[in-house]
C-alpha cells in the first residue's frame, strides 16, 4: 500500500534513469510530436525503434511497459473497431477488392483495416513512451524538472518555488497518508465497519468514520510540519538557495541528439514517403 505513491517508478540504475528529468520531459514532448507527425508506418517504425532502444537501455522489463497499454485497452479496441467499421476509403494496399463488405453506414475496407492498425500502434506508442518517463524518473526529480522548465514563469511573478515545494511535500506525505488511511480503515473494520457492500448512499456514509479521523490527524500534522519548517528557518522565497541544480551531462547530450534525430527522421519520412504504404493518408 505504501508503494502506491511510487507505483509507477521502477527503481534501477540505468542510462535512462540518470538522464536529466528536464531532458526526459522535453524528449517526451518531442517523441509525442514525432508520433503525431508520423503519417506512415515508416515514421511509426522509427519511433518504435527508438522507444525499444530506450526500454532496453532503461532495464525496465518489457512486460511492465506493455502493461501500461493494458490500462487503455478498452480505448484501443474501441478506436480500432470504429475505424474498421466506419471507414469507406477505397485505397488498395494489397490484392483483392478495396471494399470487403458494406451495409448502410458500415463498411470493412482495406483502408479501414490499415488505418485501424496505424492508430492502435500510435496509441500504444504514446502510452508506452509516457509510462517510460514515470518508470524511470522519481516523482521528486519530475517535480524538480517541471519547476526548472517553468522558471520563465517567475518573471511573471508566479511563485514557481512555492509550487514546487508544495508538490514535493505532497509527494513525501502520500506514503504517510496512505499508511494512516489504511490504519484507520483497519481500526474501523475491526469495529465492524463495512466499506464494501451496500448502496452508494450507505457507502458514502461509511466513509465518515475514516474521513474525520484523517482530517483531525492531518490538522495536527500540518501544525507540527509548519512548526518544523519555521524552526528550520523557512521564510518563503527570501534569499533561498537550491542545493540540487539539475545539470546537463554527456548522457543528456546523447539523449538530446537522439531525440533531435528522431524528430528530423520522422519529418523527412513525411516529406519523402518511401514504399507503397508510405503514401496513404
Amino acid at each position: 500500500m505504501k508503494d502506491v505513491a511510487f507505483g509507477q517508478y521502477y527503481p534501477a540504475d540505468s542510462f535512462v534513469h540518470r538522464l536529466d528529468p528536464r531532458l526526459k520531459l522535453l524528449f517526451l514532448i518531442a517523441f509525442i510530436t514525432a508520433i503525431f507527425l508520423a503519417d506512415n508506418f515508416y515514421g511509426l517504425a522509427a519511433c518504435a525503434l527508438v522507444l525499444f532502444a530506450v526500454i532496453l537501455a532503461s532495464r525496465v522489463p518489457f512486460g511492465k511497459v506493455l502493461r501500461a497499454v493494458r490500462g487503455i485497452l478498452f480505448l484501443v479496441i474501441f478506436t480500432a473497431v470504429i475505424q474498421v467499421l466506419f471507414n469507406h476509403g477505397d485505397e488498395v494496399y494489397w490484392g483483392g477488392p478495396a471494399v470487403y463488405w458494406e451495409w448502410k453506414i458500415f463498411a470493412v475496407t482495406q483502408e479501414g483495416i490499415v488505418l485501424a492498425i496505424f492508430l492502435v500502434l500510435r496509441l500504444a506508442l504514446l502510452v508506452m513512451c509516457s509510462s517510460m518517463l514515470t518508470y524511470t524518473t522519481t516523482p521528486v526529480a519530475l517535480t524538480d524538472g517541471i519547476e526548472s522548465l517553468l522558471t520563465p514563469l517567475k518573471w511573471l511573478h508566479i511563485p514557481v518555488h512555492v509550487l514546487a515545494l508544495v508538490m514535493n511535500m505532497a509527494l513525501s506525505l502520500i506514503p504517510v497518508l496512505t499508511g494512516e488511511t489504511e490504519r484507520i480503515m483497519n481500526a474501523q473494520k475491526a469495529r465492524g465497519a463495512d466499506f464494501e457492500t451496500g448502496s452508494i448512499f450507505h457507502r458514502i456514509k461509511a466513509i465518515v468514520p475514516i474521513l474525520i479521523p484523517l482530517l483531525v490527524s492531518s490538522i495536527d500534522r500540518a501544525e507540527e510540519l509548519g512548526n518544523a519548517m519555521d524552526s528550520r528557518c523557512y521564510r518563503g522565497d527570501i534569499k533561498r538557495t537550491k542545493y540540487k541544480k539539475l545539470r546537463f551531462g554527456w548522457r543528456d547530450l546523447i539523449g538530446f541528439l537522439l531525440g533531435a534525430a528522431l524528430v528530423t527522421g520522422v519529418v523527412l519520412l513525411r516529406v519523402y514517403p518511401v514504399g507503397f504504404l508510405g503514401s496513404f493518408l
Binding site: N186, A187, Q188, G192, V208, P209, P213
Partner: peptide
Amino acid sequence: FRALRKSVGMVFQYPEYQLFA
C-alpha cells in the same frame, strides 16, 4: 468474519486516532 470480529476485539496503536463521532 463479522462474527469473528465481534468476538476478537482489536485496539490499534494510538487508538485515539480512530475517534470520529
